[in-house]
């Protein structure tokens, strides 16, 4: 894997898709300061994951496409997300609640992935994973806007996807490198706290950008695109 850095700078740690906002920052450089139990849990996220056991092959394909679009993971290196979700569902490692109108999370995942495939087939005659990215986005945008979707409360489907996909991604050290997060902090703690103050090992960002106007523009363009 090629790591992006410029001459004279410390190499940046890996980030998903190689997006570097904090040049020279690598949260894994702090791993020697972590307690052993935390290091064990966090570093285990970097080793190859076992193959899926919960999802069937077609469910796995739909889940990968869904997670990739949800997180805009369109190039390597990618944070493994589907493997983490599969492991949670296989172990029934749920969040401790379900909506009354939804089945338990493992069944809900199967139902939502099969609905994605049904929806894709009805539109283009192909399963969800085989559609071009913008058509996949179109289906997801419709779920987001719908009241009910394939017999389910659409907001409950969206909620199910979010609460499995997001923590799988944002608990990976590569994602922390991307957002400048300091990661585990025991027993080291922090001494330089306050507005604009950094620890010696933290790195300032290179090109800050207010995400709100940019995000509004992107989302309005996507909304104006004709959808079914």
């Amino acid at each position: 894997m090629r790591l992006p850095w410029r001459r004279g700078e410390q190499p940046s740690g890996p980030t998903p898709g190689g997006h570097v906002r904090f040049p020279g920052y690598d949260v894994l450089g702090q791993a020697p300061t972590w307690d052993a139990v935390t290091a064990g849990v966090v570093l285990a996220r970097l080793v190859p994951r076992p193959a899926c056991t919960f999802f069937t092959e077609s469910e796995e394909a739909a889940a990968r496409a869904l997670a990739d679009r949800f997180l805009a993971q369109d190039r390597e290196p990618k944070v493994p997300v589907v493997e983490v979700i599969d492991e949670r569902l296989a172990h029934k490692d749920f969040d401790g609640w379900r909506y009354e109108d939804m089945p338990p999370d493992d069944e809900a995942w199967r139902a939502s992935l099969s609905a994605l495939d049904d929806e894709a087939r009805s539109r283009s005659g192909k399963p969800f994973a085989e559609l071009p990215g913008d058509e996949q986005d179109g289906i997801l945008a419709d779920v987001q806007d719908a009241q009910t979707w394939h017999g389910m409360d659409a907001s409950h489907v969206w909620n199910l996807w979010s609460r499995y996909i997001l923590p799988a991604f944002y608990s990976h050290p590569w994602a922390w490198n991307e957002i400048g997060f300091g990661g585990p902090a025991y027993p080291r703690g922090y001494k330089n706290r306050g507005v604009g103050i950094l620890e010696p090992w933290e790195k300032p960002e290179a090109h800050p950008r207010d995400p709100v106007p940019w995000g509004q523009w992107i989302e309005s363009v996507k909304r104006e695109r004709p959808r079914r």
Partner: peptide
């Protein structure tokens, strides 16, 4: 927010 916009908001976490 999801997709590229979600990622951009998250890059702005600090």
């Amino acid at each position: 927010h999801w997709g590229v916009v979600l990622r951009e908001y998250m890059r702005d976490y600090v």
